[in-house]
Amino acid sequence: MASRHVSQVIGCTPGDVYEFAADPANLPRWAAGLANSAVTVDGDRLLAESPMGQVTVRFVPHNDLGVLDHDVTLPSGTVVNNPVRVLSHPNGAEILFTVRQIELSADEFERDLDMVAEDLRRLKELLEAQ
């Protein structure tokens, strides 16, 4: 199984990036690969309609470390762990997302990498426009 890191520098404080990205209500605004409509909160789970079908998402608890790791349960039942960090950067913040090749062909993996990169670019645009 391959893993690759996708990152984006954002001209905002790490705290602002973390708070925006951690808010389930904001996911459909920037994370189209995960949620393409409103997210339903069910206890510690988020239920979202994604391009793959309905997924269940569990984020790590809110923290001061910039950790946005989350497990996504796919419609197939496979659970994918997604490590995500918001780091300090000389130009503001950098968000780093580790993409893992689970149940994906090489072409599908490249498509997922492109989707994550696009999601992070959208996050940058939204935050820098505020």
Rank of each mutant, 00 (worst) to 15 (best):
Ser3Pro: 00
Arg4Pro: 00
His5Lys: 11
Ser7Tyr: 02
Val9Glu: 08
Val9Met: 06
Ile10Trp: 07
Ile10Tyr: 03
Gly11Pro: 01
Cys12Leu: 03
Thr13Lys: 05
Pro14Tyr: 07
Gly15Asn: 14
Asp16Phe: 02
Val17Lys: 09
Val17Pro: 10
Glu19Lys: 11
Glu19Met: 06
Glu19Gly: 00
Ala21Cys: 05
Ala21His: 07
Ala25Gln: 11
Pro28Asp: 03
Pro28Arg: 03
Pro28Gly: 02
Ala31Tyr: 11
Ala31Cys: 09
Ala32Trp: 00
Ala32Arg: 05
Gly33Asn: 15
Gly33Ala: 14
Leu34Ala: 07
Leu34Ile: 14
Leu34Asn: 04
Ala35Trp: 13
Ala35Tyr: 11
Ala35His: 13
Ser37Leu: 00
Ala38Ile: 00
Asp42Phe: 01
Gly43Val: 09
Gly43Pro: 14
Asp44Lys: 13
Asp44Tyr: 10
Leu46Ala: 03
Leu46Arg: 10
Leu47Trp: 14
Ser50Arg: 11
Ser50Asn: 11
Gly53Phe: 07
Gln54Pro: 11
Val55Leu: 05
Val57Ser: 02
Phe59Arg: 13
Asp64Tyr: 08
Leu65Asp: 11
Leu65Asn: 10
Gly66Gln: 02
Gly66Asn: 06
Gly66Pro: 04
Val67Leu: 07
Leu68Cys: 08
Leu68Thr: 05
Leu68Lys: 10
Asp69Val: 06
His70Ser: 04
Asp71Pro: 04
Asp71Ser: 14
Val72Asn: 01
Val72Met: 12
Leu74Arg: 13
Leu74Thr: 12
Pro75Gly: 09
Thr78Ala: 10
Thr78Trp: 02
Val80Trp: 01
Asn81Gln: 09
Asn82Glu: 08
Pro83Cys: 13
Pro83Met: 14
Arg85Ser: 14
Leu87Gln: 14
Leu87Tyr: 01
Pro90Leu: 15
Ala93Glu: 02
Glu94Thr: 07
Glu94Cys: 13
Leu96His: 11
Leu96Tyr: 06
Thr98Ala: 14
Val99Cys: 12
Ser105Cys: 07
Ala106Leu: 12
Glu108Trp: 01
Arg111Met: 00
Asp112Trp: 00
Asp112Ser: 03
Asp112His: 02
Leu113Asn: 03
Asp114His: 06
Met115Leu: 06
Ala117Pro: 09
Glu118Ile: 10
Glu118Ser: 15
Asp119Glu: 10
Asp119Ile: 08
Asp119Met: 07
Arg121Cys: 04
Arg121Trp: 03
Leu123Glu: 06
Lys124Met: 04
Lys124Gly: 00
Lys124His: 07
Glu125Ala: 13
Leu127Thr: 06
Leu127Gly: 04
Leu127Ser: 08
Leu127Glu: 08
